[in-house]
Design a protein around this nucleic acid. Structure first.
Lengths: 341, 341
DNA sequence: TAGAACTTGGTAAAGGTTTACCGAGCCCTA
DNA sequence: TAGGGCTCGGTAAACCTTTACCAAGTTCTA
């Protein structure tokens, strides 16, 4: 059984031997950890080139007790909203010396735990979690937080006191309610909310905020999925509701709603106004363009970067449990325009 | 500057001391690497529990020269097609002892290189790459392949002789051509192909296969994006083309095309037939449901698993450059149904 | 010119594992 | 009872780095 280790890995010792210096010198040349003559440094770098040496980050991490890496655990990459968030988080770290590794929990609490264990065992410097469930993920988040600097993102397990970055779902829903009151005739037909169950904090918060802002609303609850929006729309039409204002808990639901009402022969925005939430990941696929609550993702990811970098250098134990909540905006587009159609 | 290392990491030595045994015994108890009395094993496990010990995978990897990890580099997670593929690859490894870590290159050759370096430095056991570009990614793929067991997936840099798993784009396009010939009246209006430029191997292959199968087709080339499909559709309509058959190089383009023609007041499938390619990631968002070439993703990811596991155990240096190409199927749905509408 | 102050290179320990090898104790047989 | 063949625990080396400390050489000052 031949290990195809390719070429049996060059170490710093090989470089040192090739350059005729000690390993300390090689390390110092590569890391600029102490001033040295240009001549000597070049001598080392030439050998590095010649041998094609690449530092073994495992050895370095062991010694430094630091890996320059961050783990990002997302509930489900097949959901374009989460994959977009993942991308944006990675991108936010591009100017840092930290590598972001993504692990998908595939909507499975067990797998979420495995992801966290995988990262913890590999000694990541920090962990960013979008927990699968507001309740069932508790132990997982706890495990993470006990071991390493942890930030929850987008979704929150409130019972574990970690830092958190998210958006003000209540404010977002208020904007939606205001918009509908101003621009839709709600006399004929009270507004309808098509949401997700309260298993995740976002589903939970958006639902209760909308109910509070528009107590007269009819609410239908399902999951954060296209199919659910589609089914709910069919259901409405089949019940004889053929126009009105529909708010949703997420863009992906709104897309389903639009498809669903169109399949039944109704039009958006002429018959139904539809409003989404998130404006991340899938909203660009909507037709007509989707009025949606936009989360300020860039600000949010920038905050995550700040939190991670600070806790890596241990600056800020003060605000270690701080929740940073951003106010979202309403972006008005064709699916629910400003004037009454 | 306080390192908030939480609780300063329990090592195997702490466990050994607590249990009153040597580190060798602890390691053997945890890894079952040599038979031992149940009594002793329990004694060790109790201490492990009591201290909350978790193995440091860095130390282990250093010693074992194996990390039980796989790096997956994708071009762009904001593209739902790639994020779905990433999810599916991870999922395929769920029953193995290997953890899959995902890194997004954000469509940037430099970042793709950084991703590969990050994985190589961390000594992953294997690398799965979906290269950004057929040409510009060459050096990156080469770097990977020189160092570790590498598989290219979906897209191919042919000039680097690595293993590859993909689908037969030519065959897929032949199926599309056949379908259109049988079910659409192409006399009135020759078929139209809305594709992507030849920078990626999939764009390239799909284009040339379709042109070969239907030389009379009009072709428009852009990018793998919704916007491009939308713009291309507008362009067609604005040129006075108001019906016909449209094949595309990807579902995400097809979605854009559907949206585009609908925006101009035409219907799918009554006016335009639209066919996608991939049937992964976004096709479920299409309305009407999208006729598409389905890649057999499960078979493909299973093959990747096999390749990675084999090369990890060094079984198969023979087929080390094997290209495994799967035949896709055509899934007929409403956007281009079987009978002439 | 003695020696302080600085520069610059090397030695070796430490970081957390796993495991080859050793040795001690036991049972069994000749 | 000598010693062969077990079982089972421990010691220490190795995996690859970085860096505290040391030592030697140089420059400068008093």
């Amino acid at each position: 059984m031949i290990q195809d280790d390719k070429n049996a890995a060059i170490t710093i010792h090989d470089v040192a031997a090739h350059a005729g210096v000690s390993t300390a010198t090689v390390s110092r040349a590569l890391n600029n950890s102490r001033p040295m003559s240009d001549e000597l440094r070049n001598q080392v770098l030439v050998s590095v080139q010649a041998l094609g040496y690449r530092v073994n980050l495992l050895g370095r991490a062991l010694r430094l007790r630091r890996t320059f890496s961050l783990g990002l655990v997302v509930p489900d990459l097949e959901n374009p909203f989460f994959s977009a968030l993942a991308q944006r988080v990675s991108r936010a770290f591009i100017d840092s010396d930290i590598d972001v590794f993504i692990y998908s929990a595939d909507n499975d609490i067990e797998l979420e735990r495995r992801a966290i264990q995988a990262f913890l065992g590999r000694q990541v410097d920090g962990l960013v979690l979008i927990p699968c469930s507001e309740i069932e993920s508790k132990d997982n988040v706890l495990l993470a937080d006990r071991t390493v600097s942890t930030v929850q993102f987008d979704r929150l397990v409130l019972s574990v006191p970690t830092r958190y970055v998210g958006c003000d779902n209540g404010h977002g829903m208020n904007l939606v309610a205001e918009h509908l009151k101003k621009n839709v005739d709600l006399q004929r037909q009270p507004p309808i909310f098509i949401g997700a169950g309260p298993a995740s904090s976002s589903g939970h918060q958006r639902l209760s905020a909308f109910k509070k802002a528009m107590p007269e609303a009819k609410t239908l609850l399902g999951s954060f999925s296209f199919e659910w929006g589609q089914n709910a729309a069919h259901e409405l039409v089949d019940q004889g509701i053929t126009s009105g204002a529909i708010a949703t808990a997420a863009d992906v639901i709104a897309l389903g709603v639009i498809a669903g009402v169109q399949e039944r022969g109704y039009r958006v925005p002429e018959d139904f106004r539809v409003v989404g939430f998130d404006d991340v990941g899938v909203s660009f696929l909507a037709h007509p363009a989707l009025t949606s609550v936009r989360q300020p993702v860039d600000k949010m990811t920038a905050t995550i970067v700040e939190m991670v970098m600070n806790s890596a250098t241990g600056v800020d134990n003060v605000a270690n449990q701080a929740k940073t909540i951003f106010k979202p905006d309403l972006i008005v587009r064709q699916s629910s325009p400003l004037r009454k159609v």
